[in-house]
């Protein structure tokens, strides 16, 4: 399996002394749809900045399709396209000129550039706007323009930094479809996002980053399986014996106080079975609340674990 991007022990300390990345390592396979998830300030954009050479790293290494970005600047840069978090095209230029100029930077001959430009502006619903100054586009259109721009040289790896921030639901869905289509046609995609739903919808693998560290790096499926478990908070009328032990494989228990405990029940086990065990040992349940809320909950717990 080819590795599209491999990041080893990447650290970045900004000029003001702030340690934005504290040694992260990541690998993304070719063809993957990979999510980099993390709260504000986690270091997502810094990571992308290092890959795209806008940020000078402090230490570590980055390889794109097996080639080091420091020593094979030219080849590696041809291989990826970046959609940044913030608008970074000239506000005074026309939509088509922006994409055509980008094509020129990647050495596309004019005719091919014009074809690709039309293809991607159409796909992203911007063809009608081609002769307008980019300044006059809406926020969502600006984002799509940056996607078209990143694709014009048809890179093997597409990196998107929060592509759907500030995009309405309908448009977000069509963007998802578009990205899935691009991914299905073989392009490796890495995206950062705050929207957990987005990662869940799109991505096969995921890394969670917080305060410059990777706190989780797994497949989306495994993560979702973990989420399958439910945590219930049970209040009891009778006292909970401190040495209470649930004789169930798929459930675990944490006693909070004499009348309250948390029970984690994994997929497949019914709540009734749990209750049956409680009544066997003579504990009466007074009330029950569901604690977990899937991905959000897990996300938070991973981040707490990082403190």
């Amino acid at each position: 399996m080819t590795i599209a991007i491999s990041i080893q022990n990447l650290a970045k300390t900004y000029a003001n002394g702030f340690e934005a990345l504290k040694g992260i390592s990541l690998e993304v396979e070719q063809g993957d749809f990979f999510a980099l998830l993390g709260p504000n300030g986690a270091g997502k954009s810094t990571t992308i900045g290092v890959i795209s050479t806008l940020v000078n790293k402090t230490s570590g290494s980055v390889e794109v399709f097996g080639k080091n970005v420091d020593t094979h600047v030219y080849e590696t840069k041809l291989d990826f396209g970046v959609v940044p978090q913030e608008v970074n095209f000239s506000q005074f230029e026309k939509v088509r000129d922006i994409v055509m100029t980008q094509a020129g930077y990647y050495g596309l001959p004019r005719k091919l550039a014009a074809e690709r430009c039309e293809k991607y502006l159409r796909k992203l619903g911007l063809w009608e706007k081609r002769d307008e100054r980019s300044r006059s586009l809406s926020g969502g259109m600006k984002r799509r323009l940056m996607i078209a721009r990143a694709l014009v040289h048809e890179p093997r790896l597409l990196i998107l930094d929060e592509p759907t921030a500030g995009v309405d639901i309908e448009l977000r869905r069509s963007m998802w479809e578009f990205l899935t289509e691009i991914n299905n046609s073989g392009t490796t995609i890495i995206l950062t996002t705050h929207y957990l739903e987005e990662a869940e919808q799109l991505c096969r693998n995921i890394a969670i980053i917080d305060e410059g560290r990777i706190v989780e790096n797994t497949s989306m499926r495994k993560l979702l399986n973990e989420l399958d478990s439910q945590v219930y908070i049970l209040e009891t009328t009778s006292q909970i014996p401190p040495d209470l032990d649930l004789k169930l494989e798929k459930a675990s228990l944490e006693i909070i106080d004499e009348h309250c405990m948390e029970v984690t029940v994994s997929g497949g086990l019914s709540v009734n079975e749990v209750f049956a065990v409680f009544s066997e040992v003579g504990i009466k349940i007074d009330s029950m609340r569901n604690k977990t809320n899937r991905l959000e909950q897990l996300f938070l717990s991973k981040l707490e674990g990082n403190d």
Partner: peptide
Amino acid sequence: SHKFQHSIEELLVSP
């Protein structure tokens, strides 16, 4: 002006 608008990044990221 390219620096100010960040459009210089188009060039810096390119090969």
